[in-house]
Every structure is written in C-alpha cells, then in structure tokens.
Design a binder for these strands. Structure first.
Lengths: 215, 215
DNA sequence: ATTTGTGAATTACTTCACAGCA
DNA sequence: TGCTGTGAAGTAATTCACAAAT
C-alpha cells in the first residue's frame, strides 16, 4: 500500500512525505507507519520526513521488486485473462510472463500478446525461465495436482484463486483469494445481517481499506 | 471458512464435529474456533461437539445468508464475467443478479443468462430490486463516481477491485481486493526478496490460508 | 521547529486450563 | 469420560510520548 501511495505522490511531484502525510493518505496511524518502516531500516530524516523516491526504492528492494519479476499463470479463463491484462498494463514490476492451460482449444491462443502454452510444458518452461511466483486460476478439482507440479518446478509463492485448501511444502507460500467467501462476508456488513445479530460489533478491518493478505 | 468446511462435511455425511476436528480441517486452533463460535452464541453440546447442520444454519443466519442474497455487478469485463460465473455455479447463497456496464457495445449482451444493463439504469434498478451488495469491477478512474451512485441507490456493502482508495459514507462497508498488490506482496515470500532482507521474519499470515478480509 | 525512531504503556488477541454439562 | 464455554494468563500489536537528530 505504501508503494502505491509513493508512486501516486511521485506522479504528483511530491518529493518528501512525513509519516503524518502518509497516515492521512493511507488511513493508518503515523506511529504505525513509522514502526513499519523502521522495522526494515532508518529511511527518514528527522525534522523532515521521508524522501519519497528513496523510500519507494527501499520498499521495492524489501519486496524484491528491483528488476521485473516474472510470474506464471496457470488457467487461462476469464479470471486469468483479467489478471494478465491487469499485470501487463499498470506497472511492470510484476508481470505475467507465461500462461498455461490444459484445454487444447485454448492452447495457441493469445492473451495480451502471450501465447497460451499446454499444461504438459509447464514444469519445463517454469524451470527454464527460473520463475518463482505463480497464479493458480484453475478449477478446484485440479488445484492441488497443479500446485504439486509447480512446486516440483521450483515455484516458491502462489496466489490461489480456487476455493480449496492447498497443502504446500515448507518454504512455499500460498496466498488464497476466495471470491465466494468475500462475497458472503460482505453480506454480514449489510442491514440484513445486522438486524439479526444484536451485539455483533466486530473490529472494522473492512473499513480501513486494507487487504489483510487478500486480494 | 467455517461455512465452507461445514458444507464439505455435510457432503461427506458427517453430522457432528468437535472443535478439535474443525481445527484440523481449518488450520486454526480449537480454542480459537470455540471462541469464535461462542462469541455469537452457544451452538455446541458439551461432551459431544457441534451439530454440523445446525452450526451451518447458525453461521448462515449470522452472516445474513438465509435467503438468496442479490448482488449487483458493475463492470462486465473479464473480471466481472469470471465473478458472475463463480457466483452462479457453486452455491446460491449469494448471487450476482444484475450486471451493468457503461460500454454501449456490451449492453444487451449476456453473461450466464444475465443481460448487461446500461449504466444509466443502475440507480433505478438497484433501488427497485432492493439490492444492498455490489461488486465494483470498473476502471479506477470512474470507481469513486460509481460508488457514489451506488450509495445513493442504497448499496451498503461493496467489493472493490479497482486499485483506488474509495471514500465511503458512514454505514457503507468497502472491501478492497487489489490484485496488483497481492502479486507484489507474493514476491516478498520468494528467495529473491529473502536474500536481500536478512532479518525479515514476518508473522506468516500467508501460510495459514486465511483471507484476512481479502478475497 | 519539526519529525523520526523507539522504549514504555496500553490495548487487543491468543492460548491455557478448568469448571460446567451432557 | 469428553468436549464446550470461558475467565485467567500469556503473547502480540498498537498507541503514547519523548529523546535524538536536523
């Protein structure tokens, strides 16, 4: 979130930002921001604030976004296509660089200039391209099998859109995004649910605009 | 997450579950599960466990999922199409019931049997259908304007896919899902980032398989 | 004069451990 | 005997408040 904010500020021509300003823009407290940043190093100047372009560079370095990171997409459905479009246009830090699909009808077609490759070539290509991050946008039934293949191919982090609990080996991170669950949770914040639950005052994580590790 | 687990158990013919069993299946601790559930009421039987179908019904009631909840989708791009497909097939608790798009070329086309309606009719239709939940899958530039219209039409909860900080009125919940951010964060859990950051031992929220308020 | 970086205080969350029930 | 529901204990996260720095 800081990274996006800093990019916006750069576009606006702002060169220095105090934790107070960042607080206003992000909705977090200024102390929180200082703690977050100080955890990784002393990036600010006392009495002045943070140099936005320097801080942006530091966050890029911390996240590992220095040079363009290549991502593999498995599953070229609507969701996969949407993700590919997103990743190609906006920034070029992280980019979907290969797309795989099991459906022979899709293989050979193009998404944003990327040719869809057959599932059979997945392991080899990922290894050859030394890709470490993958997006899993396949049906739940095959998700675990695909993940196993991806891990064999050296994938270290996966963004999983299938509504299935995946078993990952130690050292492999799986981040889940469950669209059905998100939709269901939303209803809770609606008058339909509130009417039923008298005392349901939950911490409003939702209001803050955070991702909480979700997409 | 509990709801999904309970549905799976029902499909397997399991009628009673202890917090211990739920713990194994979800990855949370059994105490956590008991605390979570006890917050909303005493749904279990001491010495036995939780009746799965009763607990499922309770969670449905808590979330407000009793009868089919109608959801409006704004933006019929790839992402919107993917979401509509998801919501139509699996469960019918929450369902995308209307689709709007500003593009005249898309208006009149169908997604999963739903005719795409013009943006101009959005407010009226949402009011008439008494829809309270909306999914925002529009370009960032127009997201705030669309949200304003949605709030005027009585929308109370929004799932936002545009990478923009939205200003919502009190009483309106906005849940953000930022695909670009998710992809960027993933890289951190990769050897590319780990090599750079010596001491970066973060709480592994990612490993738990949680949504953290994210989709 | 202003803002960072950070220990100390506070608040929130999780785990422990057990009384209360079936 | 077995498992829930829940105060108490322990751990983690956030906020306070101020010395250090420019």
């Amino acid at each position: 979130m800081y990274l996006r904010e800093l990019q916006d500020m750069a576009a606006e021509g702002v060169h220095v930002a105090s934790s107070q300003e960042l607080a206003q823009r992000t909705g977090f407290s200024s102390e929180q921001i200082r703690k977050d940043l100080a955890y990784f190093g002393a990036f600010g100047t006392r009495g002045v604030g943070y140099d936005t372009s320097l801080l942006e560079a530091e966050i890029r370095r911390i996240l590992g976004l220095q040079r363009g990171v290549k991502v593999a997409l498995v599953g070229a459905g609507n969701l996969g296509t949407a993700l590919t479009r997103y990743s190609q246009q906006e920034h070029k830090d992280v980019r979907i660089s290969v797309v795989f699909d099991a459906d022979p009808a899709k293989v050979g077609q193009e998404i944003e200039g990327l040719r869809i490759l057959p599932a059979a070539e997945m392991g080899r290509v990922i290894r050859e391209m030394a890709i470490k991050v993958a997006v899993l946008a396949v049906p739940g039934e095959v998700a675990q099998a695909v993940l196993d293949e991806l891990m064999d191919a050296g994938i270290e982090a996966v963004l999983n859109f299938s509504p299935v609990k995946l078993r990952a080996r130690p050292g492999v991170t799986v981040q889940n995004i469950d669209l059905t669950m998100e939709l269901q949770s939303l209803v809770y914040y609606t008058s339909e649910a509130k009417g039923t639950e008298e005392e349901a005052i939950l911490p409003d994580a939702a209001a803050k605009g955070g991702q909480d590790g979700r997409l």
